[in-house]
């Protein structure tokens, strides 16, 4: 979950690994304050997503050619070329819309949950989703 969020938002394996390590180190320091599994999951998603967005805004990781090749998932069911194209297009979205799309379709969160996680109004989440889908659809046609 944490690594995958980092990978999809940052588009760099090295950056996703750094993020995962930082988040889990902090998680295990705070674990006794996280009462329930749901609380723990929420905390992990929230911290991972905020950190990934912060990193993107501060200093976006530059994917190496190795990253680009390794991000091609050979186990993709369906159309692997389409899946890879979609991931590349998502990687070109600004940080917040990118995070919203990843939370919606990777984590299967509904817009209300995404709004709470990102501290973002529901209408803004819906707007990011709608625009992102329009952009993706526009590039695919």
């Amino acid at each position: 979950m944490v690594y995958s969020l980092g990978l999809r938002i940052l588009r760099s394996r090295a950056a996703a690994e750094d993020l995962t390590q930082d988040v889990f180190m902090q998680f295990f320091q705070r674990i006794t304050t996280l009462d329930t599994p749901a609380h723990g999951r929420h905390w992990l998603r929230q911290v991972a997503t905020h950190r990934a967005i912060d990193q993107l805004r501060r200093r976006p990781p530059l994917p190496t050619s190795e990253d680009v090749m390794s991000l091609v998932d050979e186990t993709d069911a369906g159309d692997p070329l389409l899946a890879n194209r979609l991931r590349a297009l998502i990687g070109n979205l600004p940080p917040h819309p990118r995070a919203v799309v990843v939370l919606r379709y990777q984590e299967d969160m509904d817009p209300t949950e995404i709004g709470e996680l990102l501290d973002m109004p529901l209408n803004t989440v819906k707007s990011h989703l709608r625009r992102a889908l329009e952009v993706l659809r526009g590039h695919l046609t």
Binding site: Y3, L86, R87, R137
Partner: peptide
């Protein structure tokens, strides 16, 4: 909103695990 595009997005963004070395 195209259901196919949403399905394609779920497929493209399915969770991936880190390498065993990193784990």
């Amino acid at each position: 909103m195209s259901r196919d595009l949403e399905q394609d997005l779920r497929q493209a963004l399915r969770a991936v695990n880190p390498s065993p070395e990193f784990t």
